[in-house]
Design a protein around this nucleic acid. Structure first.
Ligand SMILES: [Mn+2]
Ligand SMILES: [Mn+2]
Ligand SMILES: [Zn+2]
Ligand SMILES: [Zn+2]
Lengths: 135, 135
DNA sequence: CAAAGCCTTGCAATGGAATTGCATTGTTTT
DNA sequence: AAAACAATGCAATTCCATTGCAAGGCTTTG
């Protein structure tokens, strides 16, 4: 599916910057931080990139995970996620060697028990360790 | 067990500040950030509190979790944790209403599968939602 | 006990990232 | 075409984490 259609489906205007960032994200194997994105888009304004990621997240196009260093890392959501329903409750992996954060879309978070009267709305799970590349 | 003994067991000199912070943490029901600690210790230096928490964490006396806002929250570890072995791999809960982070020491993180050749060293799981108090 | 060495503290400065305000420019609606 | 709305660029701010360095304490050793 084309970037333009994906944006439309998520109720986002297909601006040049959004198209670029979206296709950039589609090519990524790992999650990316705002600073990482900024490094790869040298001529772009940092705030615009910031707001691009924010609007993507608010509209259910990307999800985020905070890595061990406290940096927020963004990655494209599963195709059928939207604002109201996320279908990508998967494990994330932070490699302490290469310092990359990876989505593991095939490894879902197991179901959890919670104490009585605690209402769950979202679960984030980060495994730290060493990735296959860095072994 | 007395604060002094706990510090000794974790190879930390029992300074006045460490004793105070430790007994403060023992009274907490929720995890606490550096800023939260600083608010409650107005006459103390922020850097000293920072390093107190860091040394506690390095010596396995507290563990930390980054909440939804990206703030690091600290809480005392289970009594038998130490630098090399943590026995408190429990779920943490962030309430979006009161914005507190709670340890759920009775709710352990389920065992996880990982892709081939990924080496796990630590797992952090944060559930977001509404706590029992805020229902 | 006294000297030397190591650890802890306080204060100032720096670093890094997230967030906001505001004026400008582009897009959509009427 | 005008009005309303949304996105962008730039500057400034806020917030929190982290470091350098000198001063003060505690521990070890001769
Ligand atoms: Mn992911
Ligand atoms: Mn905990
Ligand atoms: Zn790696
Ligand atoms: Zn609550």
């Amino acid at each position: 599916m084309k970037a333009q259609d994906i944006l439309a489906r998520h109720k986002l205007q297909p601006t040049a910057m959004r198209m670029l960032v979206l296709s950039y994200l589609q090519k990524q194997e790992k999650a990316i931080s705002l600073s990482g994105l900024y490094d790869d888009f040298e001529n772009a304004d940092r705030t615009t990139l910031y707001r691009t990621l924010k609007s993507f997240e608010e509209n259910g196009l990307v999800h985020s995970i905070t890595d061990k260093k406290g940096t927020v890392q963004y990655a494209l959501c599963h195709a059928d996620c939207d604002v109201h329903e996320h279908n990508d409750a998967h494990i994330h992996f932070y490699c302490t060697s290469c310092e990359n954060t990876y989505c593991l879309p095939k490894f879902n978070i197991p179901s959890l028990e919670l104490p009585k009267n605690f209402q769950k709305s979202e679960v984030k799970l980060l495994v730290e360790g060493v990735c296959d590349q860095c072994q």
